[in-house]
Design a binder for these strands. Structure first.
Lengths: 208, 208
DNA sequence: ACCTGAACACCGTTCAAGT
DNA sequence: ACCTGAACACCGTTCAAGT
């Protein structure tokens, strides 16, 4: 069999398989990926441009799945909307940290991502953030979300307990671990940033 | 010449050369790295454990260079100390974003990093952050710093200007780019987080 | 202990051949 | 258009041989 009646592969099929494969803890390698798909390696090249093309396909699949096409929690106050938008992106990252690592270098230009930025801009302007601070604030939210997602990959034992001093060791011993720890961190960070934005806007209004 | 009188290589020499090589925009490859050092590839294996060992050496060199052994801005108020500590780490990241990408998976267990965490814990406790929130707050600062460093790698053109809507396009057209943009973002983010911490402590003190 | 060249294994990519 | 097997180039790693 050389050319089957219906194509056995597609960008999406490859992307999804690659996500599963990477998230299972493997490095992204074309030979085993093709094996998983029960296809020869060279077949992949008819649908994606090599290894980088596979990564692009992975990104497309994830964005389509996680980043909504319509504004999140429309009608709600700005803080709720910021939280909703950022949370959707964060979930994509945090659910697939190993994929995220591969996507680092590629530029994201999905329309849904554009919509995401636009929503954040609207919410922040409504919050009272002055125009010349809006984009920087969006970037801050983005950077934190990104860092928080990476934190999901870090091992439970950040440092050997024996090495930590008294107070640090004491705090570490009662600190949550794993997904719960990461979730708590993300929520707290978002709280602090939103509180910070509120405080800054309030100060600005008073003219400082 | 098989064994020279004085060793031509060392962990540090290799680490430093690798940092320069990667920061120059190349992928980390042992053949050209060895060429740069005027050694054969196999010579590297007498000092570091393969490619991963080279990455470890890079990390060691950077931490020794950037993360101070003693607390930063000792005696100053907590906010200044937090800012000082975080800034040192951030500078390491932001000056070497390509190296950072390689260090993602390795666990950092340098003593200086432990000292860094301890200093942050002290400063936050002094700020009035309750014990059971201190570590989470440290993690938030860490995640933001990390994300801000990665942002330094992202291209100037996040999205094609034509694609952006009215307000977003307008804001983008007057937005700074490059290092200035990244620096502004980092400073703003740290401001917002510190303001957020202050607000949260103040609310807590009032018993909410 | 430290450096070398050669051999090896692995993996991404290309291409002519098949339907 | 879509799949295949073989050939190729590249690169990390090992090892016996040299001082």
């Amino acid at each position: 069999m050389a050319r089957p009646r219906i194509a056995r592969l597609s960008r999406e099929i490859i992307g999804r398989a690659a996500i599963d494969y990477v998230e299972a803890g493997h490095n992204l390698q074309l030979v085993p990926l093709a094996h998983e798909l029960e296809v020869s390696v060279s077949s992949l090249y008819h649908h994606v441009k090599g290894r980088d093309g596979v990564i692009q396909a992975m990104r497309q699949v994830l964005v389509a799945e996680y980043v909504p096409d319509v504004p999140v929690s429309e009608g709600a106050d700005w803080a709720t909307r910021v939280r909703g938008e950022v949370e959707a992106t964060w979930r994509m990252y945090a659910d697939h940290p190993r994929v995220l690592e591969l996507m680092l270098t590629v530029v994201i230009d999905e329309p849904a991502v554009l919509r995401f930025y636009t929503s954040l801009v609207d919410a922040l302007r409504e919050a009272g953030v002055p125009d010349d601070e809006v984009l920087t604030t969006v970037e801050v939210l983005d950077a934190f979300t990104f860092g928080a997602a990476f934190d999901a990959m870090s091992p439970d034992e950040i440092m050997k307990p024996g090495e930590a001093d008294g107070k640090l060791a004491e705090l570490l011993s009662v600190h949550p671990v794993g997904r719960a720890r990461n979730r708590l961190m993300f929520d707290r960070g978002l709280d602090l940033l939103i509180d910070g934005i509120r405080a800054r806007v309030a100060r600005g209004a008073r003219g400082q």
